[in-house]
Each structure stands twice: as C-alpha cells, then as structure tokens.
Design a protein around this nucleic acid. Structure first.
Lengths: 154, 154
DNA sequence: TATTGTTATACTCTATAACTATA
DNA sequence: TATAGTTATAGAGTATAACAATA
C-alpha cells in the first residue's frame, strides 16, 4: 500500500488486452483501491475493514448471535471467533452466553463500541469515494446499484 | 465456498442499513462472488485467479521481466516470486536470466502455457458473467466502465 | 550505493477438520 | 446425533525487512 512519490520506476508499457475488461480483475484492483482509501482515512484506528463491518452490524442488531452475524457477512466461523475475540479485547464488543442456549454467544457493542462506530461512520462507509475517482454522483449511485445486482444483494 | 443445499440455517433477518450501499463492502462481496464463479468454471484446473492473470499477462508481453509484470498487476515482489515459481514448476512458464542485466528474470510462456491460456481464455475472462446476475449486456458494460473509472484503469 | 529478485517472518482471511460443550 | 462455537493447521495474499548478486 506504500505509494512513494519516488517510486516512479521506469517501466515499459505492459499490454493487458481484454484483461482490463474482465470483471474479476477489475474487482481485485477495486479491492486494492478501496483498501487504500480505507487506510488513508482510518489507518490510525488500528482496525481492519472486516472488523469495522462486524462492529457496524452488531450495532444494528444488538444481541444477535455470532454465527448469525457471520453468515450474513459471509465470514467463516473460525475467522469470526478471532475477529470477535480481538474486538472484545479492544473493549468494543461484549460477548454474552445466552441463557436459553448456552452454546450460543450473543454480541453487542460496549459504550466505547457505540462511540467508535458513531465517530467513524462516514469515514468507514466511504461516503465520499466519488471525489477520488472523479465520478459524479449519478455514476456513483449506478456503480453501487450494479454491484448490488451482481452480488445478489439487490 | 461451500454452498450445500442443506445449509438453509434458519437465521433471523440481519439489518445492515447503509452498509449495503458502501462501496468497500460491496466490492468485498463481489470479490467472493467472482471467486465462486471462477472456481465453478476453472476449479478443476488447479490454478488460482491470480496465477491465471499472471499467465495471461506474460502471454501478452513475452520476455518482460518479473518486476515489471508484478508492478503492472499490483502483485508484491515477494509474492510474485512464489507465483512464478509455481507456474514454472507446472511447466507453464519459463524464467530466463537476461544477458544484459543478470539480476533480471524474463518471463515467457512455454508451449503448454500458450495452450493453457488459449483453451481457458473465455472461462477465465468470465465473458458471460451477466447471465448469473440477471444483468443485460448494457448493464454489464456500464459496470465494467465504472469500475475502470474507479480503479483508475480507465 | 542502488536495484532485482529472493528468503524469511508476521499478519489477514479462507478452507478444513477435529474438538468442547451443549442441545 | 446434531449444533454453536472453538482450536489448530494449511494455504493465498499482503507487508516488511534483510539478504545475495549484480549494476
């Protein structure tokens, strides 16, 4: 993610042909770009994008169990355990065993967690991504609409 | 990437709010979807999407050095070493030390490499991704155009 | 001294299986 | 038996630093 002004290596042009019209390739490059944007805005907060996503979703659905949140966000169970572990250790998330089913772990935000989400909400949701890409508002809406359709979240 | 017909876990609805309009989140889900598509078509070929991308680009630019290709595809040097190592071991790529600069490694496809790219080209480029997502051709073109603009590849 | 590619370590995330404690 | 979550291991990919060979 380093992007030194100096790193202007003199490279010969690289022909990519139809690759630059391949959705899979474009999504990968978009992912890199999106990570760069995230770290520019929130890099000093010590959280990864995935952690923020989980935090946000817990805030919207307090008390829901870990597995339910994980499935909704397409996070694998094993990884979810580590993720919530970190968030709990940071004091942002509280895990409570359900009295109904003592196997289940309910998730909710601590007061710090709520404050954290509220404070960094706009930076996290990247509400101003258009500016970097020189896109107008209409294009941004259309990009979001088409991605939702492609992912099936539409 | 498992998606058993049985795995219809009865989950309560999970509220995600503005997250489903967040570009970063959508790109991550799109990435998962795109990987699923890739493995449906090419899973039995034993190559990862990144490896195919490298293979393709070497084919378009025979003889270019490793670092140049890596920078163009935004692959980190350390990873590129492993990647080309695997491709060379599979007999798809040939690495040759340049006589001009004996530090440089030039990459080119073997005969098998050429054949592999030619054979799986359409599956790899995912030229028919629209069908799965119920998108028409115009929407597909627009999605590609907007992603190119966002990534700066435009 | 600087650069090309390599090796090594550590971290995120995925995939998988084995395990526990419940149910 | 099955399920919820955990632990452990292996792999892909990234970040970083140190290194050898070469320039």
């Amino acid at each position: 993610m380093r992007d030194d002004a100096k790193s202007e290596v003199q490279d010969p042009p690289v022909e990519m042909g139809e690759l630059t019209d391949s959705l899979g390739f474009l999504i990968r490059i978009a992912q890199i770009k999106s990570f760069e944007n995230f770290f520019e805005r929130l890099g000093d907060q010590g959280l990864m994008p995935g952690e923020f996503t989980v935090l946000w979703t817990i805030g919207m659905n307090p008390g829901l169990r870990q597995g339910t949140i994980a499935r909704a966000l397409k996070i694998k169970p094993a990884h979810m355990t580590k993720l919530t572990g970190r968030l709990a250790k940071s004091g942002l998330v509280e895990r409570t065993v359900s009295p109904d089913d003592r196997r289940a772990v309910g998730l909710s935000l601590t007061k710090e967690g709520h404050h954290f989400v509220e404070t960094h909400k706009d930076d996290f949701l990247d509400v101003h991504f258009t500016e970097k890409a020189d896109m107008d508002a209409e294009e941004a809406l259309e990009l979001v609409r088409l991605l939702k359709k492609f992912t099936g979240l539409a």
